[in-house]
Design a protein around this nucleic acid. Structure first.
Length: 152
DNA sequence: GCCAACGTTGGC
DNA sequence: GCCAACGTTGGC
């Protein structure tokens, strides 16, 4: 079981939306590094839900991977902003995962606190200029985030 | 709203 | 294959 972190702008899709839906297909990722991380996810992995582009940004809850290796349906849809004409049903370029709601933290762990607690190498999301929306989180770091989230 | 960071595109 | 131009992300 591995830990991950995935970003979403809450205006687009928030932890509350996931709590309502319980399960969601994480579509629209069009970055190869992020896709490769999603390819290596396995059912049962835990994923921190991070709210980006909001005030303040931070980790707001926890999800678990339900299915991995799922072709992103938006790549086949000409009406979608994520349409990829180079992708075919036989050879899809973009795989994603479905995620299930686990918990919403009583209070978010804000980016500022993550910065105070972890170095750039320990937790990539605190890296200045970081734009990657899917990233791995090492076990000790993940356990510390959980401890902070559940203690406050 | 600004702008630094950085991924992608496309001309050459 | 280089790299300038461009577009997007995301903190502030």
């Amino acid at each position: 079981m591995r830990y991950w972190l995935m970003k979403s702008e809450p205006d687009v899709y928030s932890i509350n939306d996931l709590e309502r839906d319980q399960e969601t297909l994480w579509d629209g990722v069009r970055n190869y590094q992020a896709r490769n991380f999603m390819r290596s996810m396995e059912p049962g992995d835990w994923v921190f839900f991070y709210h980006s582009n909001t005030q303040p940004p931070g980790v707001v809850g926890l999800m678990t991977v339900a299915q991995s290796g799922v072709p992103d349906p938006t790549q086949f849809d000409p009406a979608s902003e994520y349409y990829d004409p180079k992708s075919t049903q036989d050879n899809p370029r973009w795989q994603t995962v479905t995620l299930r709601f686990l918990e919403q933290f009583p209070t978010m762990v804000p980016l500022e606190q993550l910065r105070q607690t972890f170095s750039e190498d320990e937790l990539w999301v605190v890296r200045r200029g970081n734009r990657l929306s899917v990233m791995p989180v090492d076990d000790p770091v993940a356990e510390k985030i959980l401890a902070i989230a559940r203690h406050s």
